[in-house]
Design a protein around this nucleic acid. Sequence first.
DNA 1: TATTGTTATACTCTATAACTATA
DNA 2: TATAGTTATAGAGTATAACAATA
Lengths: 152, 152
Amino acid sequence: MPGPSRTAFRLSQLGNFAAARFAELTRSLGLTPSDAGVLRLLGREPGISQRGLADRLGAVPSRVVVLIDSMERRGLVTRTRSSTDRRTQELTLTEQGQHALLQLRGLAQEHDAAVLAPLTQEEREQLVALLAKLSEGHRLDPDVHPGYRDSA
Amino acid sequence: MPGPSRTAFRLSQLGNFAAARFAELTRSLGLTPSDAGVLRLLGREPGISQRGLADRLGAVPSRVVVLIDSMERRGLVTRTRSSTDRRTQELTLTEQGQHALLQLRGLAQEHDAAVLAPLTQEEREQLVALLAKLSEGHRLDPDVHPGYRDSA
DNA sequence: TATTGTTATACTCTATAACTATA
DNA sequence: TATAGTTATAGAGTATAACAATA
């Protein structure tokens, strides 16, 4: 009666649970999950263009415009025209943006602990290894969480 | 440099990946992920009311109305007024709905195999056990995939 | 001509609130 | 008075398409 084929379902269900909890935490910093994704990426690739960001996020350029509009308004990122190609905007984190990123990383650790709480230390290590292997097998970008998109 | 606190992120990323792939499969049956959730639940609890379905899904009653409207139009479910309480609608799968549910289960198995492909048989069993423990620890409903909702 | 970013617009999904009918 | 279901409406989030500036 337990039935086969429940593992992917469970994975997806737990992933959704974890994402929802994390979204809640980000909101406590005044951020949306999308904001958090941009902060993470800009922390790793400062100076990236909007087009580059769109490609990394798997988003459409117009989506990046409204996203960056909002984050710029809130003082998290700055746009500066590239001197070598004046069509492109170079995106960088402000000090406030870097501060938000640090806070975010702190929350991510608490979040991790909360999500993994039901497991023993040994089980956590097993899980880490298994998820890493799955991620690599499916060629998922370690820095990007699509958050919604179809996988096509 | 690898940094801590990436497990929940990975879980969420992989869950999203799995959900997106499955959504793609359901579309090949002409179903949305929401449809799939209703089919699963109605398969297990035939005759449930719209209110009961809303509670199980964690959705609002008006959401169930449009969902069932659409599925009824497509011949997947029927509404029948309860004879004991004529306010409530009893929801049941049509033959076509049951057929769709069977197809869905077949797809779920293929999906499972594809998602778990990077792992050995032993690793898969480990993963199943770990995810089950996590699910139980967080009291997730084994039949319901919220798909979006905040976890509050 | 092609590309970056922008704007205007529309679509999808979901929720809130007001309403009807039964209880 | 309370509950099941419905309708009408609005909001958030995202995409598509037309456009301006620059290459």
